[in-house]
Amino acid sequence: MTETVSQALQDRALIEEATKKSGLIWVRGNAGPARALWHLWHDQAACLVGGGDGEQPLDDLGLTDGGTATVTVRSKDKGGRLITWQATVVEPAPRSEAWQSAVDELKGKRLNAPDADTLTERWARECRVLRLVPTGAADQRPGQMPADSHAAPPLATPAITRRPAPAALPKLLRRGRKG
């Protein structure tokens, strides 16, 4: 019993520290693939803002108030997956005390906002502020990682086109190495 409690406390500490230090987290909701999202650790949860005009997209992830999400955090120094944890999605009402507390922290981290003076009003009007609250022990952590890579094929997009390399390309590449 004490070993389980000890592991849960270690997981909680690792979740908090890794999420605080990471600039991006990968979030998978009830729909769609996991997406990298910028966030801020505040009040025992990963807080993020999205949707609306000019913010990170959240609508196709299936993140609903009271729903669940899987959060994957990378190692800051190595860049690989460090920990994966389950979260409960909480969407505070715009302009509520919890919403305002999260927004006050998030707006300081929002880089290059085109409307820095009216950012809070736009977020209240157009965007969603979400809190991802950890729910228990980590699914994956150092010493308990799956054997498969979790690599996913790239999503289909019209921007990807494959054409044969020009016949002169190998000669051009060889010439560049000599000079």
Rank of each mutant, 00 (worst) to 15 (best):
Ala93Met: 08
Ser101Ile: 05
Thr135Leu: 03
Ser75Pro: 06
Trp41Arg: 10
Gln10Phe: 09
Leu40His: 13
Arg28Asn: 05
Glu121Asn: 06
Gly23Phe: 02
Lys20Arg: 15
Asp59Gly: 14
Asp65Thr: 03
Pro154Met: 13
Asn112Phe: 04
Ala98Met: 02
Gly143Val: 14
Gly79Asp: 08
Leu37Thr: 08
Leu82Gly: 01
Ala156Met: 11
Gln86Glu: 14
Gly80Phe: 07
Leu119Ala: 12
Leu61Glu: 06
Val27Gly: 01
Asp65Val: 01
Gly54Phe: 05
Val89Gln: 03
Thr135Ala: 07
Thr120Asn: 04
Gln44Lys: 12
Leu82Ser: 00
His42Tyr: 02
Pro166Asn: 06
Pro166Ala: 12
Leu173Ser: 01
Met145Val: 01
Lys20Leu: 14
Ile15Gln: 12
Leu82Ile: 02
His39Gln: 15
Thr4Pro: 00
Leu173His: 02
Ala147Gln: 15
Cys127Lys: 03
Met1Gly: 14
Ala159Ile: 06
Ile15Glu: 04
Gly29Cys: 11
Gly29Lys: 08
Leu82Phe: 04
Thr84Ser: 09
Leu173Asp: 06
Thr118Lys: 09
Ile160Trp: 14
Arg125Tyr: 10
Glu97Asp: 07
Val103Leu: 15
Glu126Thr: 07
Leu24Thr: 03
Gly179Pro: 01
Gly66Val: 06
Pro158Phe: 14
Ser22Gly: 12
Arg110Glu: 08
Thr2Asn: 10
Thr161Asp: 10
Gln10Ser: 07
Leu9Glu: 11
Thr88Pro: 05
Ala156Lys: 09
Ala31Thr: 12
Glu16Phe: 03
Asp139Trp: 00
Lys109Gln: 15
Gln7His: 04
Arg128Glu: 05
Leu132Lys: 09
Asp148Asn: 11
Gly54Asp: 08
Lys171Arg: 13
Arg141Ser: 12
Thr84Phe: 00
Ala151Arg: 15
Arg28Trp: 02
Ile15Phe: 05
Ala152Phe: 08
Glu55Asp: 14
Ala45Gly: 07
Val73Ser: 01
Arg12Val: 04
Pro92Ile: 12
Asp43Glu: 14
Arg95Met: 00
Leu82Val: 01
Leu9Arg: 11
Asp53Tyr: 05
Thr70Gly: 00
Arg28Thr: 15
His150Trp: 13
Thr88Gln: 14
Ser149Asp: 13
Trp123Leu: 13
Pro158Lys: 07
Thr19Glu: 10
Asn112Ser: 12
Pro154Glu: 14
Arg28Lys: 12
Trp38Phe: 03
Ala13Ile: 10
Pro94Ile: 02
Leu40Ile: 14
Ile160Thr: 09
Ile83Tyr: 01
Gly179Arg: 11
Thr72Phe: 01
Thr84Val: 11
Ile83Glu: 01
Pro146Arg: 03
Gly66Asp: 02
Ala156Asn: 11
Glu126Asp: 15
His42Ile: 13
Thr118His: 11
Ala34His: 00
Leu130Pro: 00
Ala93Leu: 05
Ile83Lys: 03
Ala34Ser: 13
Ile15Ala: 02
